[in-house]
Simulated assay, not measured.
Amino acid sequence: MSQTQSQTAESSRSPLIASLPSDHSEFSEIRQRMVDDQVRPLEVNDPRIITAMRNLPRELAVPPAERGFAYADRTLPLGNGRYLLQPMLTARIVQTARIAAGERVLIVAAGTGYLASVVASLNAHVVALESEAELVRQGHAYTDVTAPGIIWHQGPLAEGAPENAPYDIIIFDGAIREIPSFCVTQLAADGRIVGMMGKSGDICSAFLAEPDRAGTANGAAGTFEGWATRLSFDAPAPLIQELLPIPAFAF
């Protein structure tokens, strides 16, 4: 697949989908318990998020070996350095973004598309960016079932998805050390960035960043001055390795 957006699903079905039994209703009760025990107690009060997570088949978004843990309070490996964040992290990150219907949202390191599907359930226009070809294939298969309107873009994470920019919101599906430079040009002037920021160790802080611009005398937008960032809760989250800063050369 080329490094351009792809809106057509692969003709072959992903093993995440094909290996499921024809009847997976046994997950329904566990899904409801996940929301009641892990999501709602943590001040996730947006009814749209609650409804989405009660209905989206999280078990379809993980490899067969992890399916028994799909609704556990843990982050699960997807392969190729990507992870499915634990349910409470997904819910709280999406709530932090304050997504309104019709907004354009870029999901970076989208994995198999679960978080992208939650966001799409809020009537947002979603672009899912993933660099790993196999995960893009699996993500297509998942979102063809859960949120057919999602646009998938395969390409380097550090370059974003300029073809569909600007975005009202950019969400990182994993932790980052710093905001990548592509956000400067691909985020709308009044947009926001959401994710987990990890400065050191395993604990990260949820953040919401907005452009900090120098205004002019009449209040019009001026030059870009960086990011105005607000931190909220702390939680462990895996770093998106592809977006780690390149170490500076030292003599």
Rank of each mutant, 00 (worst) to 15 (best):
H24A: 12
S6V: 12
R13P: 04
R230L: 11
I49K: 04
T112R: 06
P148E: 07
A161W: 06
G174S: 01
N55F: 01
Q3C: 08
H24D: 11
E225T: 04
Y83S: 12
G195C: 11
E59C: 03
M1E: 07
E159F: 05
T112F: 00
S232G: 00
Y71A: 03
A217R: 10
D212A: 15
E163I: 02
C183W: 13
A65L: 09
D36C: 04
N45S: 14
E242M: 03
A221E: 13
I179L: 14
W227E: 09
A52I: 06
G149R: 15
G226R: 02
T96K: 12
R82F: 07
G113N: 10
N164T: 10
W152H: 15
P21Y: 04
P87I: 06
P245K: 02
V145P: 00
T185F: 04
A248R: 11
V119T: 09
V127R: 01
R104E: 05
R31K: 09
R104Q: 12
V194Q: 03
A147P: 08
V44M: 04
L84S: 13
P166S: 09
E43C: 05
T75Y: 08
Q86D: 14
I50W: 08
E178W: 00
T216L: 12
D212M: 14
V105H: 01
A209D: 05
V62Y: 07
M34N: 05
I179W: 00
F251D: 04
N123Y: 05
D73T: 06
E66N: 10
A128N: 13
S205D: 14
G113H: 06
E178N: 10
A100P: 00
E210P: 00
T223A: 06
S22F: 11
D36L: 14
I99G: 03
I30T: 15
A209T: 06
F207Q: 02
T75E: 12
A128Q: 08
E10A: 15
R92T: 13
I246D: 10
R82I: 06
F69R: 15
R58H: 03
I169L: 08
P166F: 05
L244E: 14
L16R: 05
V35K: 03
V62Q: 05
A70P: 06
V184C: 01
I176G: 07
P15T: 08
R48K: 13
Y83W: 14
L78I: 08
I107F: 05
Q3N: 14
P211Q: 03
S12E: 09
R177D: 09
A220Q: 15
A165R: 07
I240P: 01
V126A: 12
P57F: 04
A120Y: 12
A70Y: 05
A109S: 15
R137K: 08
V184Q: 12
G195I: 02
V194E: 04
G222Y: 02
M88G: 01
T4L: 13
P77C: 01
T216V: 05
L16P: 00
Q138F: 11
L60N: 02
G201K: 06
L106F: 10
A9R: 10
D73M: 07
T112K: 03
